[in-house]
Nucleic acid binder design. Structure first.
Length: 320
RNA sequence: GCCGCGGUAGCUCAGUGGUAGAGCACUGGUCUGAAAAACCAGGUGUCGUUGGUUCGAUCCCAACCCGCGGCA
C-alpha cells in the first residue's frame, strides 16, 4: 500500500444525501476505515433520529470497534446523551483516529455533514478557553432580564471589533465572545487568528462535496422521515423512560422536540413529520451553503435519482 | 332554497376609500469548543368574479361563484 493510498478521503454533504453508503463503498474498495464527522451520531441511543448507520459493537482482540458491514466506523455511538460535545473535542479525537488508521495501513474515509467539525479538523481552531457553563448561564440571565441589546453592548464595551462582527440577536455567539474575552483576559478579536475562516480548508487527500438537487433531496428527506418515524418515537420514548431530560444535549437535536411533542399529544403524526421534514430541509440548505464555499472540493452533483449509485460514485472518487 | 360567517402571499391570518402587512414556508447569506446550534437579509400578491358608487375601490353597494355552519 503506497503512501498515496493512505491519504484520507473527506466526503461532505447534507443530511440524507447518502454519504454513508458511499463511504462504505470506498472503505470496501480501499481497505479503509470510516471517521464520522457528525455532531449527533456521536451519541449513544440516538439511532433512528440521527440516521446512524446500523452496526454493532465488536470486541476483537485488536480493540473495541463499532462495525458497519464489517468496516470500523469511528466516532459514532460513544457519548452519553447528557454529555456535551464540541468542535475542539472532535478535532482531537479525529486526529488520533486518523493516525491510528494510517498506522494500521488503512485508508481513512471521513464522512459527515457537520461542516464546522470538518473545517476545524482541516484548518485547526485557535487555542481558546473552553466553555464555562456557569458563566454562560450568568450572561444568558443578563440577556433575559436586560435584553439582547444590553448584552451586546457589554461585548462592545470590552471588544468593539468582535461586537461589529456579531449581530445582537445572535446571543449564543455574543455570549461566547464575552466568555473568551473574560477568561483569556484580552479581546477575543485579538485572539482570532483567522485561520479557521478566511481560508479554504487545507486538506490532505481527496476532498469531496456531494450535492443533491434541492427538490430531489426534499423528496429523500420526506420519505426517510416518514419511514423511520415510528421507530424514532419508540427510541425517544425509551430515552425519556430511562430518565434523560428532554433538553439534554443529545435530545437538543433536529426533530426530537417534534417527536416529544407527538408523544405528549401536542402534535399529530403527520404534523410532526411535516415539521421535521421542513427543519431537515432548512438544515440541508445551511449545510449546502457551508460546503458550497469550498471551491477546492470536488463537486459531485446529483440532478436525478439515477445519478445516485454509491458503487459508481466510489469508483469515480477513487479514479479522480 | 333561506339565514349567518368567510374568500387578501405557498399556508394560517391581520388591515385600510389613496393598489397591502405579520408569522411560518421559501430564496440568498453568516459562522472559531452548543454547529442537527444560534443568527442576518429579501415580500414572492388579478386582495374570489363581474358590475355599480367615487377623482380614486382590496375596502362601500349589488349580483354571481366557492367554502364552512345553522334552518329547511
Amino acid at each position: 500500500m503506497s503512501q498515496e493510498q493512505l491519504k484520507p478521503i473527506t466526503l461532505m454533504g447534507a443530511n440524507a444525501s447518502g454519504k454513508t453508503e458511499i463511504a462504505l463503498a470506498l472503505a470496501h474498495r480501499l481497505s479503509g476505515e470510516i471517521i464520522s464527522a457528525d455532531s449527533k451520531q456521536i451519541y449513544k441511543f440516538l439511532a433512528a433520529g440521527t440516521a446512524k448507520p446500523a452496526g454493532a459493537w465488536a470486541e476483537p482482540p485488536a480493540g473495541r470497534a463499532y462495525l458497519v458491514e464489517g468496516i470500523p466506523y469511528n466516532l459514532v455511538d460513544t457519548l452519553d446523551p447528557r454529555a456535551t460535545y464540541d468542535a475542539g473535542s472532535f478535532v482531537k479525537e479525529a486526529k488520533a483516529v486518523l493516525v491510528k488508521i494510517q498506522a494500521g495501513g488503512k485508508t481513512p474515509v471521513m464522512a459527515g455533514g457537520t461542516g464546522m467539525y470538518i473545517q476545524a479538523f482541516w484548518n485547526g481552531i485557535d487555542e481558546l478557553p473552553p466553555a464555562d457553563a456557569a458563566l454562560r448561564e450568568k450572561l444568558a440571565a443578563v440577556a433575559r432580564s436586560s435584553g439582547k441589546e444590553a448584552l451586546h453592548a457589554e461585548l462592545a464595551a470590552i471588544d468593539p471589533q468582535a461586537a461589529l462582527r456579531i449581530p445582537p440577536g445572535n446571543i449564543q455567539r455574543v455570549i461566547r465572545a464575552i466568555e473568551i474575552t473574560r477568561l483569556a483576559g484580552r479581546p477575543v478579536s485579538q485572539i482570532w487568528s483567522g485561520r479557521f475562516f478566511n481560508a479554504l480548508p487545507v486538506h490532505d487527500g481527496k476532498f469531496i462535496f456531494l450535492k443533491w438537487q434541492r427538490d430531489l433531496l426534499a423528496q429523500r428527506i420526506k420519505r426517510r422521515t416518514a419511514a423511520r418515524f415510528d421507530e424514532w418515537a419508540d427510541e425517544t420514548r425509551a430515552l425519556i423512560a430511562k430518565g434523560y431530560p428532554a433538553d439534554c444535549p443529545g435530545l437538543k437535536t433536529l426533530g426530537y422536540p417534534q417527536v416529544l411533542d407527538y408523544l405528549a399529544g401536542r402534535l399529530s403524526k403527520p404534523e410532526a413529520i411535516r415539521l421535521i421534514t421542513a427543519s431537515s430541509l432548512a438544515y440541508a440548505k445551511r449545510q449546502n451553503t457551508w460546503f458550497g464555499r469550498y471551491k477546492n472540493a470536488m463537486l459531485i452533483e446529483l440532478t436525478k435519482f439515477e445519478d445516485y449509485d454509491p458503487a459508481a460514485i466510489a469508483d469515480r472518487i477513487i479514479a479522480s
